[in-house]
C-alpha cells in the first residue's frame, strides 16, 4: 500500500510539472548576429545654396554626395525629405511637394543617381522611399567600402508677391531643410 502511495505521489508531482515541461518545448528563440553592424557615411552633408529666388531650380553636381557602406552587412538606401522651416520661426514653413509641382510656400526636391540616365530625377517626399535608378534598380551597398553617388535638385516655391511682373519672396528669412538618408539591412 505504501509503495502504491509513493508511486502515486511521484506521478502527481510529474503531472503538476508537466505544463512547465510543455512550456519549455516552446522556448523563445532570439537570433542576433552580434558581429554584424550597420554603418554608412555621407560626404558632404551640407549644401550651401545661398540666396534663392522664387520659382527657380537649383541643382548640385550629379556626383555631389558619396554614400559609402562602412559597416559589414549589405544595406539598402532609402531617402525622405521634410518641410523647410524658417530658422527664426519654425512655424513658418515651405511644404515639401508630394507631386513634383511647386506652389506658394511649396517647394520640390529630387535626387539623381550618378551615371544614371541623364535628367532621370526622382521625387523626394516626406515618405521614406527606397532610392532607385531610372530602371527601378534599387540602390544597394553590398559590402564595406561599396559606395554610390547622387545629386539633388531643388525648385523653390512660387513668389510671395509680385511687383511689375517680377516675383519676390518676403526676404530676410533663413530656411533650413533636412534630407534623411536611411540604411536598412538588405
Amino acid at each position: 500500500m505504501r509503495v502504491i502511495s509513493f508511486i502515486l505521489v511521484v506521478i502527481l508531482a510529474l503531472i503538476s510539472c508537466s505544463p512547465a515541461l510543455a512550456e519549455d518545448n516552446g522556448t523563445i528563440t532570439i537570433t542576433i548576429l552580434t558581429d554584424k553592424y550597420i554603418e554608412i557615411t555621407l560626404e558632404p552633408t551640407e549644401w550651401n545654396i545661398g540666396d534663392v529666388e522664387p520659382n527657380t531650380e537649383y541643382m548640385t553636381n550629379p556626383t555631389w554626395c558619396t554614400t559609402t557602406n562602412s559597416g559589414n552587412c549589405a544595406v539598402d538606401i532609402h531617402i525622405e525629405g521634410e518641410d523647410a522651416v524658417w530658422v527664426d520661426n519654425p512655424a513658418t514653413k515651405w511644404t515639401l511637394s508630394d507631386d513634383g509641382d511647386n506652389a506658394k510656400n511649396t517647394y520640390v526636391l529630387w535626387y539623381h543617381i550618378a551615371y544614371d540616365d541623364a535628367d532621370s530625377y526622382t521625387l523626394i517626399t516626406t515618405i521614406d522611399t527606397q532610392m532607385k535608378k531610372a530602371n527601378e534598380d534599387p540602390i544597394r551597398l553590398i559590402g564595406n567600402g561599396d559606395n554610390k553617388q547622387f545629386g539633388l535638385k531643388l525648385l523653390t516655391p512660387e513668389a510671395d508677391f509680385t511687383t511689375d511682373d517680377v516675383g519676390y519672396f518676403y526676404g530676410g528669412r533663413e530656411m533650413k531643410i533636412t534630407v534623411t538618408i536611411n540604411a536598412v539591412a538588405a
Binding site: E46, I49, Y170, G171
Partner: peptide, 17 residues
Amino acid sequence: MMRQHKYIWFVVALVVS
C-alpha cells in the same frame, strides 16, 4: 515694408564654409 529684400536666405552650410 519688406520689399527691399529681394531674396530669401537659404543658409544650411555654415560649418562647411
